[in-house]
Write a protein that binds this DNA or RNA. Structure first.
Length: 737
DNA sequence: ACTGATTCTTTTTTT
DNA sequence: AAGAATCAGT
């Protein structure tokens, strides 16, 4: 026990050893929050004789859940199976599978990821002939998810205008369709689970009686519904221990509600907030930069991060002409860091949006530096994997229309739009799923394999080869049916193998020119199934498919190599690196332009910037470009305002020394507003890319390009009202703004 | 019904 | 720029 608690500072110790009561821990970045959570769980079990069975811990990502379990196992020799540790979605899924009947679900209900959900919405809108110009599917999706996040069913949404009424109608139709197909989306997992607990008193008593200790990580990112779910589960007896940092709330776009922290204080009668303010991660300069930046936000809970480490290096700033040059710079610096002995896996390359990874990947590939990209296109989202999963879904739950539509003619078996339309029409008529309609149509056709399982069905299929339809709807019905029969006795990896073989996917991709990689991924899917049944307690096909939807990302092959870590700032939350490169620090990109229209958008972007800065232990690189390719077009950007919010004395500018003037230009171009001293007030310094200017006739604009010098000097200015124009400096009377 | 070509859209972030 | 969706020709 003393071993368990040794090395904790006094606040951490206080938090870990709190007696049975609810608590709010305000934990700054790098303050040892995960350690506090895991140590507390270990402490409860070891010293307080709390059974693992009565502990429920919620994390924000699957990765964090796994990490927590690993850490606890290393502290205590206990079986962690009885503990409920996972994401909100994961836990709700667990609960719904255990009580699928009470929740009104079929036993093999499937989970829709965002793309699946959108597909269903598009289909539903088409079915009822909704104008998808007026009601874009994406917006409908957003509306539905928002309503669900607030705990509302279609009938409960207050609709005062036509548009909302329409949305509500779509919501209801969508809901019916999902029920028909036996599928639930992410938000539905939470809402169903919440409704189940509300409605079913016996179950509620059971669970709230069981979970005496509820621990929540990243509490600032919980949504309204998640908070309500927690309260329900906690009942009156449980100790609820939540850890969060309002400065790292970066998921408001998904319904996260920082207000939950205040509500929690009130609802759970928290008398004293425990603050973890000592940062064990970053050197002083990095921390100062982050602290100064975040002070520009309003309404923060008071907190002051400090470190006992020295100041360390200044943050390095690099101004690149293009995104291409920026990538080249990062590659070179990463190389020399690696040469100095920093492991590649200790170097993080962060960016605001996934699209930015491509340039970096390209440069890294050419430099043959090992790297790993997180997020972006995940394993379970790849086309071939989606196809394979669709077959598996048909085996588990053939009423899944999404799955059926994906593979009914893939690989091609002669079912075209015509037959599909017919199928959809009869499904609509019968009010059932497409599969049910297909069965109906098939009745007159081929006799299925049913009732003949006494002999091994595989050999049965081979023997009766002559009867098997090769093309058309019948062949599909026969295929799925025989797969269902053939998989009855098989283990999960065998099912996957069986499916890959019989679906024709293997053959298809073997014959494809670029199919080798996809083939590899398909085989990797068997491995995924194998490792899944080793870890999971429920090794059914339905559970595996749920796992695939909930944990789309983390399964990747060959991840044990030392490699640079590429990811968005969002997915970097909770991680730390010796050195961090943050690229694309430009207005419109970071802060992202879409954030301008949202209430509190800019502050959320700033918190995101805060998260990025606090990832670095020793060295931080900040880079921006003057032009960047976006949607196939060159965009000219100005440096991010966040760069200006970091004190100059903490920064070191790294630009290559070409000629004195150039550096001066770049520096003054960025910091003109901050400087009053005339040191750099030469003529050339005014006109550089990014400079805001005013023209007598065209008004306000920004310089996006320069060329020539002396009398020939011209600048290209993008005016807010008059478009982009080339102007000669000699004639145009431009004034810096 | 399948193919290749052309047009359209996408991107903020994730369970 | 790249992938998806749609269209035209076979």
């Amino acid at each position: 026990m003393s071993l368990l608690l040794s090395g904790l500072n006094s606040e951490q110790l206080q938090a870990v050893t709190l007696q049975h009561q609810s608590a709010l821990v305000l934990a700054g970045a790098g303050s040892g929050k995960t350690r506090v959570l895991t140590t507390r769980i270990a402490y409860l079990i070891q010293s307080k004789q709390v059974s693992p069975h009565s502990i429920l811990a919620v994390t924000f990502t699957n990765k964090a859940a796994k990490e927590m379990l690993t850490r606890i196992s290393s502290m205590l020799p206990i079986n962690t199976q009885g503990m409920w540790v996972g994401t909100f979605h994961g836990l709700c899924n667990r609960m719904l599978r255990a009580h699928y009947q009470d929740a009104g679900l079929s036993h093999a209900f499937q989970i829709l990821d965002s793309a699946d959900q959108l597909a269903v919405i598009k289909r539903v809108l088409k079915d009822i002939n909704a104008d998808d110009e007026k009601y874009p599917p994406r917006q409908v999706q957003w509306f539905i998810n928002n309503a669900k996040d607030e705990g509302l069913r279609g009938s409960q949404v207050e609709a005062y205008d036509d548009f909302t009424r329409k949305m509500v109608e779509f919501y209801s139709v969508y809901e019916q369709q999902c029920n028909k197909e036996g599928v639930v989306d992410f938000a539905e997992l939470l809402l169903r689970s919440y409704e189940l607990l509300t409605r079913n008193e016996i179950l509620r008593r059971h669970y709230s009686g069981r979970f005496n200790h509820i621990l929540v990580d990243e509490f600032q990112d919980t949504s309204q519904l998640q908070y309500k779910w927690l309260r329900l589960l906690a009942g009156t007896e449980a100790s609820v221990f939540v850890v969060g940092d309002d400065d790292q709330s970066i998921y408001a776009f998904r319904g996260a509600n920082t207000g939950n922290m205040k509500d929690f204080e009130r609802d759970f009668h928290i008398s004293e907030i425990i603050k973890l303010e000592q940062n064990y991660r970053s050197h002083g300069n990095i921390l100062d930069a982050a602290n100064t930046l975040i002070r520009n936000n309003s309404g923060r809970l008071d907190k002051n991060l400090w470190t006992s480490e020295g100041h360390g290096e200044p943050l390095r700033v690099y101004n690149a002409p293009t995104d291409f040059d920026e990538a080249a710079f990062i590659v070179e610096e990463a190389k020399s860091l690696h040469a100095e002995g920093v492991e590649l896996s200790q170097i993080g390359l962060l960016y605001r949006s996934n699209a930015q990874s491509r340039v970096l990947e390209h440069a890294l590939f050419n430099a043959s530096l090992a790297y790993r990209v997180y997020g972006g296109l995940r394993f379970f989202e790849r086309q071939e994997i989606k196809h394979a999963l669709a077959y598996l879904r048909m085996i588990a739950n053939p009423n899944d229309d999404n799955a059926l539509l994906r593979i009914i003619n893939f690989p091609a078996r002669g079912i075209g739009v015509r037959s599909l339309e017919q199928l959809q029409d009869s499904a609509k008529e019968q009010g059932g799923s497409l599969w049910q309609a297909a069965l109906e149509k098939n009745k007159s056709g081929v006799t299925l394999n049913r009732g003949l399982e006494d002999k091994a069905s595989v050999s049965h299929i081979e023997n009766k080869n002559a009867d098997i339809p090769k093309k058309g709807l019948n062949s599909f019905v026969f295929l799925i049916d025989s797969m269902q029969q053939g998989c009855l006795e098989l283990t999960l990896p065998e099912i996957v193998d069986h499916m890959l073989e019989h679906s024709g996917l293997i053959t298809y991709y073997s014959n494809q020119r670029e199919g080798a990689n996809r083939l590899e991924n398909l085989n990797e899917l068997i491995n995924a199934a194998t490792s899944y049944i080793q870890e999971a307690e429920d090794s059914s096909l339905a559970a595996f498919l749920a796992h695939a939807s909930l944990e789309a990302g983390e399964h990747q092959s060959g991840n044990n190599q030392d490699a640079l870590q590429l990811m968005t700032v969002h997915s970097a939350k909770g991680l730390e690196f010796n050195s961090v490169f943050l690229s694309g620090l430009e207005e419109g990109l970071f802060p992202h332009e879409n954030s301008r229209n949202e209430a509190g958008g800019l502050e959320e972007e700033r918190r995101l910037m805060y998260v990025a800065l606090t990832r670095a232990q020793r060295r931080m690189y900040l880079s921006f470009t003057q032009s960047r390719m976006l949607h196939g077009q060159t965009r000219y950007n100005t440096p991010s305002r966040f760069l200006k919010e970091i004190p100059e004395k903490l920064l070191r500018w790294l630009n290559p020394v070409q000629e004195e003037g150039v550096i001066m230009q770049e520096k003054s171009g960025l910091r003109m507003q901050d400087r009053t001293s005339g040191v750099m007030d030469s003529e050339s310094s005014k006109w550089c890319i990014g400079q805001n200017v005013i023209h007598a006739k065209f008004g306000a604009g920004i310089i996006v390009n320069c060329e020539g010098g002396g009398q020939d000097a011209r600048v290209q200015v993008k005016f807010s009202k008059y478009g982009t124009k080339w102007l000669s400096l000699e004639y145009a009377k431009l004034v810096p703004a």
